[in-house]
Each structure stands twice: as C-alpha cells, then as structure tokens.
Design a protein around this nucleic acid. Structure first.
Length: 779
DNA sequence: CCAAAGATTGTCACA
DNA sequence: CAATCTTTGG
C-alpha cells in the first residue's frame, strides 16, 4: 500500500497524509466549491473540474464522506479511466477511512467492472463465464480472415477501417442486427461502395460467439443489452450500486453513458466529474455532448465548478487559457490560480529531431544541476510514440535515466502473446485467435493449408475450430493421415496442459506450459539480441505470474491461471507497477499524461502535420480536439514548461521539412520566451508575410529527396546553415538531382536569392539558392 | 511445409 | 523506417 506512483508523489504528500485522528479535518482542506461538491451526495451531481483543480481530491473525499456518513462501501461504484487511477484512488481513500472499508469499494475501469459483471451473468447472454477478451489485434485478425473468406477485396474493405466501423457502432449501441436494419447506415455504406459491411459485422459477431470471445467494445455493448433484456439483473445491480461515481466523464462514450444511466436510474445518486476542455478521446467514440445531455437527462442536476488551479504557475495557467479560448465548443469556465507568477514558457527551435532531443537532454541536465532537481521532476510529452526514439538516444548520451510509458504494450509483444495464447486456449478451447496463433508455433508441421482446411471445416459444420480438432477423424476435411495425427497430438497436448492448469497454481502451470510446449527452448536457441530480449520478456511475464500466485495464495477464488488471465486481459503497461521508486525522467504521449503532473514539462515536436496531426486539420471538430490535447499538455506542468520543435524530421525514413505548429502562434506571446529559439521571430514574420498574400512559401519545402541525399553525403551544415551568400556568377556547382552546372546570374535578396544555372544535362534552370543545396566544384 | 528474401504499406492517440 | 505480407526455391 505504501508503494506510491512516481507522479502522484507530491500530491500525495500534500493531501494524502491523513491518519485516522486527522480525518475529521479534511473538509477544512477544501475550498468552497470543492467542499460543496464533496458534501452534496444525494441526487445527480456534475462536477466540472478545471485542470489541476483538485479533482481527484474531491472524488476521494466524497467517497470518504459517504462512508463516514454510514454508506456501506459495498454500495459504492466508482468508474475510472484507467486501472491505475482506480488503484491510486483506492489507496488514497484507504488513508482516510482505513483499509478494510476501502477494500469493499467497487472501483475500476468501465471495462474491468463490466467484464466482471458479464462473467457473473454470462449464462444470461449465452456465453460461458470463461470467455476470452480479444484485444484489438485479435479482432483485427479475425476481421481480416472474414473479409478474405467472404471473397472480398481487402484493399477495398480495409480491415482497419472495418474494425473502426464495427467499434464505433458498438460504442453507439448498434449491434449487427440493428446495423443491418438501419436504413441510414445502409445508405451510407452503399454510397461508400461498401455494402457488405453489415454482413462482415454479422459474421464477426457470430465468430466471436463461436470462439466464446468478446472484444473491448462488446464488454460495454453486452452489458447494456444484459441490463436491457433482464430487468431483474439490472435491478440487482441498481440496488447494489446505490452511489455511482464517474471520473473523466468527458471521455465516456454513448455506450458507457447509457449504462451509467441504467445503473443509477433507481436511486439517481450519480456523480460525474470531468472537464470538457480535456476531452481527448473523441476518436474512440467519447462524446462531449454527454456533458450537455446530462443536464437534459437530469432536471434536478446540481453542477459545481472547480476553477481554482493548485498545480501550475500563473504563467502556465494563463498560457493554457489563451490556447483553449480558441475553441468554440466549451462550457463557460475560467481557471485561475493563486500560485506564483513563475517563469515564461521556453521555446526551443532545433534544426532536426535529433538536435531537438539533444537540446532537451541538455536542458534537463542544466535544470537538474542548477535547481537541485531529481529526474522524476521531468517529463517529456509528445504527440506520437515514434518521437520517443530521438529523445531516448539523446538522454542516453547524457546518461539521464528515463522511463517510457506506452509504445508497444508489453502484452502485445509477439512472444508474450504467443505464450498467453497457450494459456488462453487452455482456459477457453474455443478461442480461435489463440489457436491459430500457436497451432504451429513452435513449428510442428501444421502449415497454412492445413489450418485453412480446419477453419473451413469449422464454418461448414457450424463448429468452433476446437470442435473440428476434436472430431478430426470423423470429419472429412481432406487431411492426410500424417497431418491429422500431428493435429491430434496438438489437441492432446493442450488437454494435458488444461489438467495442469486446473490442479496447479498459476505460476506452476505457466512455467510448465512454457517449457513443455517448446516455446522457451525456441526462444533460448535464438541468440540474436532480439531473441535474447524475447526470452527475457517471457521470463518477466513468468515473474509477474509468480508474483500474482504469491499475492493470491489466500484468495477465495484461488490463484490459478484462469483468474490470472481475467486479471491481465484488461491491463495496459501503465498499470504495471515496476521500478517506481527509481528516479527517472518520464517519456510519454500526451494522451498517456492525462491526470498526471510534473514540475518540469517539455512538450516536443510542435510542428504542423505532427501536432496538430495531419489527419486532424481538415475538420473543425478534430482540430479542436487537438487543441484540447495541447491544453492537456500545457496543464501537466507545475513550475516550468518548455516547447520545442524541429525544422526537419525523419518520417518513414525520409527527411521532411516542418513548419512550426500553429499552436505555437496560438499561445499569447506574453507568456513565451524565445531567447532559446534562435531566429524564431523571423519565422513568425515569415508566416505573416505569407498570410498577407506573399505566396513564396519559404517554410514548406516538400520532402525533396535531395535533402536526404545531401545529409547522407555529410554536408549537413547546409541544411540549417546559410550558404546563400557564398555563390557568385561563373561558379561551377553540383546539384544533387541536375548534376554539374554553371551559375549564369544571381538575383533577388536574402532568402529569395535565385540563381540561373546552366546544367550540362538539363539546360537552364532557375533555382532558389536557399533550397537548391548546391555544392561548389573545387578544382 | 518452411525459411529467407523481397515487396508492400502504414501513415495518431488507447482499453 | 519497421512491421507485415507475399513470393520463391528448397
């Protein structure tokens, strides 16, 4: 319980250190709106909580307040956005009301809470209680196989697109039947020349059912359907959860909102906490209008606004406000702070992504020295995960320890998924995706054509894939006896594993399976660095299982592998607690940083087409979401904020040029400090000229291959340097594309200086010296 | 059926 | 670039 997360460290010391005697005082620690929000416990309540306004504190104390006023923790449901948030809040509540009380709270993410309910009520919806939860890779694979099976072109029906379509339908509570019956949707699909989407959706649903599997979205959709179809079940949970609290309400989607409404319909003790300015998951179906609907759905709603920011300096708060003011769609609210003025936001300009990394690493090094800071005081936030690489290299060069959150999840790594697939298949034989993954890994002579035959056999006989294996001799699916024998051996191996799983602890079963299926040996024999790494990852997984086994020795539901699998299906690596006491710089995406705070924050890659993302600049809504994301990034910082951008950056192996992000211009200049930004001012001027009709777009050269070639040839100075002045008439030069040529004349000034060059091959060309990247021929 | 070489393609955030 | 899919020769 004492093991605290690095980021909440500070907050915890300030607000969390209550013991039992002190607990009476906690209300005095709250400001007026906070105290009201805590004490108004009956009826529907909405708390609009600005960034850093003590939202978690309010939620924590509200729950503590409920418990102290006689509410049984057993009757409280608190839904959070991440497992980690749930765990942390539980720890904080335990500090106030004691561990025994806190333990009975029902707290978790929507997905984890509803998966538990679905397992408990699985018979109602025709699923076994050991159903598998497909992650998005599993469902994408399945969708892809279905598209191919149906004889459709996967270039036209792109699996990713189909998956998104199905996912957003589910998030809007539209199941396959409703999808096919909805005329509007059918028209849309017809217009998009994708009339088979409904059929794919239907088949996908059927296949998941056959495999006893649910995807993430099913956990919501099926919970809703369960409650809708079985009023008695709903009634049970309504009585059970007399008080419902929802954190990060701005990020709930329609399905989640609908379930909350179902659950709280009887007592109406529903409290939602959120900030419309921090809604950053619309892409995943989150719907800001839930906040507006909430007012409509509950006429006696009481709304509280938390507007005092306790986290950041005046400068940071003001900068954030100046940015978010650009958004049209938002609730009326003004965040302010009593904190000190603080330093201005530093703006760093770098010529390349690598240089950006170096600047930031140096900057961290400098701050740390001058202000006696720890590594954990720093966070580097970026828009996309790929950006972490240059930063990592730079930090490593300066020996600054760091920790990356996100990226490829531990549980998504190939070797981990392989081993987990064995476990999954033991727990649920019908798990088609798990079976496909391991039936021939490690190789045992069951190739693609055999697998295809089995899958077709399953479809033709209306069976699960496993059932085909069970009846391999009876069914005539055209397998040679030798191959059929191999398949049967595989089946028997899994059955053998299953009996171990039933008898032994999770760790004993897991390590037995890992070694006897041949996976460990296969990885061990691979001595490449990646192979060694994979082996270590598997060991790490096994260590995790060992820990689980130890921790659950006395658990009433045992410490076997099936329970472990339920536990981890919905974990992300943000939930893995490891090395938290190590002092490291944090690297993460802005999305992952939501809810966290750091004294020193770097927001990097502030470039057009990166942040805001290229895919978001076409619609006002998407751009506003990007802006909210920027707002989230700014408001993570407590004392010092730094922005940075690079003029060139590698993307898919090509060097591309970038303009500074429009968001940089949206921050009121009064809060920015350009002294580190080189000729930043000139760039702003350039932008203005461009806007006023001068069409010479000097800051967006397309991704010329010349740039790349030149930088390889070692003349990187010419990218950021200023070679424009050194050319004169008569000089022999080499151009990377046009080859050798002679300068005939030069005209124009400064950045617009243009040379007329006669090339040996291509004749006369007029080139802007700034971009031509000419090399002088030396005799 | 398999491994290795070659071609293709994604192209943003996450439970 | 890197992950994934397809082709090819054994």
């Amino acid at each position: 319980m004492e093991k605290l997360k690095t980021f909440c460290h500070r907050q915890f010391i300030i607000f969390g250190g209550f013991n039992f005697e002190e607990k009476v005082d906690y209300l005095k620690q709250l400001n007026k709106p906070q105290a009201l929000a805590v004490k108004t416990v009956e009826g529907p309540v909405m708390i609009i909580a600005g960034a850093g306004s003590g939202k978690t504190r309010v939620l924590t104390y509200r729950i503590a307040y409920l418990i102290e006023h006689g509410v049984d923790p057993f009757n409280i449901l608190a839904l959070t956005f991440t497992n980690k948030a749930a765990k942390e809040m539980k720890e904080r509540i335990a500090k106030v009301v004691g561990i025994t009380e806190a333990r009975n709270l029902y707290m978790g993410t929507f997905h984890s809470v509803f998966s538990k309910i679905l397992r408990a009520e699985s018979d109602k919806i025709g699923f076994p209680n050991n159903f598998t939860i497909y992650d998005s890779d599993d469902s994408k694979n399945l969708i892809k196989t279905i598209i191919i099976e149906m004889g459709l072109d996967d270039k036209h029906y792109k699996p990713n697109m189909v998956q998104n379509r199905i996912s957003s339908s589910k998030n809007s509570l539209i199941n396959a039947i409703a999808y096919k019956m909805n005329e509007e949707i059918q028209m849309d699909d017809l217009e998009a020349r994708k009339p088979k989407l409904g059929a794919i959706y239907e088949r996908y649903t059927m296949r998941c059912f056959k495999a006893s599997a649910m995807d993430f979205d099913d956990l919501l959709l099926k919970t809703f359907e369960l409650f809708q179809k079985y009023p008695d079940v709903l009634h049970k949970y309504q009585h059970r959860f007399k008080f419902v609290l929802v954190d990060e309400f701005q990020d709930t989607n329609f399905a989640q909102y609908s379930i909350i409404k179902q659950l709280s319909a009887l007592y109406q003790n529903i409290c939602v906490v959120g900030d419309d300015a921090q809604s950053i998951y619309a892409f995943r179906g989150a719907d800001i209008t839930n906040i507006l609907n909430f007012e409509k759905d509950y006429s006696d709603l009481k709304t509280f606004k938390l507007e005092q920011n306790y986290r950041s300096t005046k400068n940071i708060v003001a900068a954030a406000n100046s940015v978010i003011a650009k958004n049209k769609h938002q609730l009326d609210k003004s965040v302010w702070t009593d904190n000190t003025e603080g330093a201005k936001i530093q703006v760093i300009k770098a010529s390349t992504d690598n240089e950006e990394g170096n600047f930031i690493a140096q900057s961290i090094f400098g701050y740390r020295m001058n202000h006696q800071l720890a590594n954990r005081d720093f966070a580097i936030l970026y828009r996309t995960n790929v950006q972490s690489r240059a930063l990592e290299e730079a930090l490593r060069r300066l020996n600054i320890p760091y920790r990356i959150y996100g990226g490829l999840s531990f549980y998504q790594r190939r070797e981990i998924k392989d081993l987990l697939s064995y476990f999954r298949l033991c727990v649920n034989h019908n798990d088609e995706e798990a079976l496909k993954r391991i039936i021939n890994y490690p190789t045992r002579g069951i190739g693609k054509s055999t697998l295809d035959k089995i899958i077709i056999g399953a479809a033709e006989n209306d069976m699960s894939v496993w059932q085909v294996l069970e009846n391999i001799k009876k069914l005539d699916i055209n397998l040679s006896p030798a191959v059929a024998k191999k398949v049967d051996e595989f089946r028997q191996m899994i059955i053998g594993f299953e009996s171990i799983v039933q008898q032994k602890s999770a760790f004993d079963a897991a390590s037995f399976i890992a070694s006897s299926c041949g996976l460990l040996k296969d990885l061990y024999s691979d001595k490449t660095p990646e192979g060694v790494n994979r082996y270590e990852n598997v060991q790490e997984l096994l260590n995790g299982i060992k820990e689980f086994t130890e921790n659950n020795k006395d658990h009433k539901e045992g410490n076997g592998l099936p329970r472990y699998m339920e536990d981890i299906a919905l974990l992300t690596d943000a939930d893995k607690d490891e090395d938290d006491d190590k002092d490291r710089v944090t690297l993460m995406t802005i999305h992952a940083s939501k809810g966290l705070e750091f004294p020193y924050v770097f927001v990097v890659g502030l470039e057009e087409n990166l942040f805001p993302s290229q895919l978001s600049i076409n619609s006002r809504e998407e751009l506003e979401e990007e802006r909210r994301l920027f707002y989230v990034a700014i408001t993570r910082a407590m004392t010092q904020l730094t922005f940075s951008y690079a003029q060139t950056r590698f993307k898919y192996g090509n060097l591309i040029h970038s303009d500074p992000s429009r968001f940089l211009h949206e921050v009121d200049e009064a809060y920015l400090d350009f002294s580190q930004a080189g000729n930043q001012q000139r760039i702003f001027q350039g932008k203005r000229m461009e806007a006023s009709g001068n069409n010479l777009n000097s800051y967006s050269i397309p991704a010329h291959s010349q740039l790349k070639k030149l930088s390889i040839s070692g003349k990187s100075t010419s990218i950021k340097g200023d070679p424009v002045g050194s050319f004169q008439t008569g000089l022999e030069v080499i151009h990377t594309r046009f080859g050798k040529g002679k300068i005939l004349s030069i005209d124009g000034n400064g950045d617009n200086k243009m040379a007329t060059i006669k090339f040996e091959k291509d004749g006369e060309k007029k080139l802007l010296l700034k971009f031509a990247k000419l090399q002088v021929v030396k005799d």
